[in-house]
Simulated assay, not measured.
Amino acid sequence: MDQAPARERPVTLNVPDHPAITRPDREAADAVDTVHAADARDALPHGRAEPGGLVAAYVTGPCAAVVARWAGERGITSGAVSASSLALAGLAAVWFSAGARGGLVAGAPLLAASLVLGQAGAGLARRANPFALRPDAVLDRVGELAVYAGLAAGAAAPGQSAWWLAVGAAALLSVRHTVSASYAAGRHARRPSRRGRSRRGGVARRAAESLRLPFGERFALIALTAALTDARLTFAALLAWGSAAAALTLGVRVARSPAA
């Protein structure tokens, strides 16, 4: 029986479908909830963003998923999305610095849009490399500090200085991030994170996270209080809620410590 030469035989490659290849938009959208709604309680080590509460999971999360899907379909990088988030936060700070009611109201939706883009960019970055140092967390901090400066500058325009309030809010935020990162690093070194929790438990955990005033809740608080009141009351709310959250967090950690 004649056989065709080996070079003329047809070759069939059986390559299974891979979701990262066939559905990049779905992969990008699914990655959004893994950053600001991570399975942890505090700021994570290695430059990861802090976990999210109810705002990040159920308010800005669906919008961020749409943005991430749209960016993934068009090949837009996470860095570009995060840079757009920082730019919007800067524009919000400029409007806040005017000190007028119109500027405070105009800056609020810009700040909300910045939060959505930041969450989408963080999700895209985590999908690209879950273990890499992520610059989007740094950009979030820069944008937040710029907003503090804008609010303080706007409050100083009518002659009511709020710079000491802004410095206090920024200092409290820095201390909380430093302590949380150190605690999270030690906790992750001691034990792995637990998976497979129910949706009901996830809602309860995110509600508890909201009480700790994470990134999404801070931006929502700033946007609402700035639009409805003024910068001084915004900083007062940040300091009061942030201090209470720090005390609550410290109490929970002391109660859960091995020596307790």
Rank of each mutant, 00 (worst) to 15 (best):
G90D: 13
V66Y: 07
A65Q: 14
R74V: 13
A100H: 12
I76K: 01
P62R: 11
S97M: 09
V81Q: 02
I76P: 05
S85F: 10
A100L: 15
G99I: 05
V67L: 06
S82K: 05
R69L: 10
S84W: 09
G61T: 02
A80L: 10
S85Y: 13
A64H: 05
C63W: 11
R101H: 11
A65H: 04
P62E: 13
I76Q: 04
R69M: 08
L86T: 13
G90E: 14
G72I: 01
V94Y: 11
C63S: 15
W95K: 05
A68G: 12
G72H: 10
S84I: 08
S85D: 08
A64P: 10
S97G: 11
G107A: 05
G107T: 05
A83M: 14
G103F: 01
G102D: 11
A92L: 06
S78P: 12
A68L: 06
G107H: 08
A71Q: 01
E73P: 03
G72K: 11
S78V: 03
V66L: 15
W70N: 02
C63I: 14
V81R: 00
L91N: 08
S82Y: 03
A83E: 10
G72C: 12
I76M: 12
P62Y: 12
L86V: 14
S97A: 15
G72A: 15
L104Y: 04
A92Y: 07
I76E: 02
S78D: 15
G72L: 02
G79A: 09
V105E: 01
V66M: 10
V81Y: 00
A92S: 12
V81T: 14
I76W: 07
I76R: 06
G61H: 07
G61F: 03
L91H: 09
G107V: 02
S78I: 05
L91M: 15
G103A: 09
G99Y: 02
L86D: 13
L104H: 08
G102T: 12
G99L: 09
V94M: 13
A92W: 06
A68W: 01
A93Q: 04
R69E: 00
A71T: 07
A64Y: 01
L88G: 09
A93F: 01
S85P: 13
A100P: 00
S82N: 09
G102I: 09
L88A: 12
V67Y: 00
I76L: 15
G103P: 03
A87P: 10
A89E: 03
L104C: 07
W70C: 10
V105G: 05
A92D: 11
A87L: 15
V105C: 03
E73F: 07
A106C: 14
V67T: 07
A65D: 09
F96I: 01
G99D: 01
V94K: 00
A106K: 08
V94H: 07
A106F: 04
G90L: 15
P62N: 12
S78M: 07
V67G: 00
G107E: 10
F96A: 01
V81D: 00
A71I: 08
A87D: 07
A68T: 10
R74C: 14
S97N: 06
V105N: 04
L88D: 05
A68V: 12
R74M: 14
L91R: 11
A65T: 08
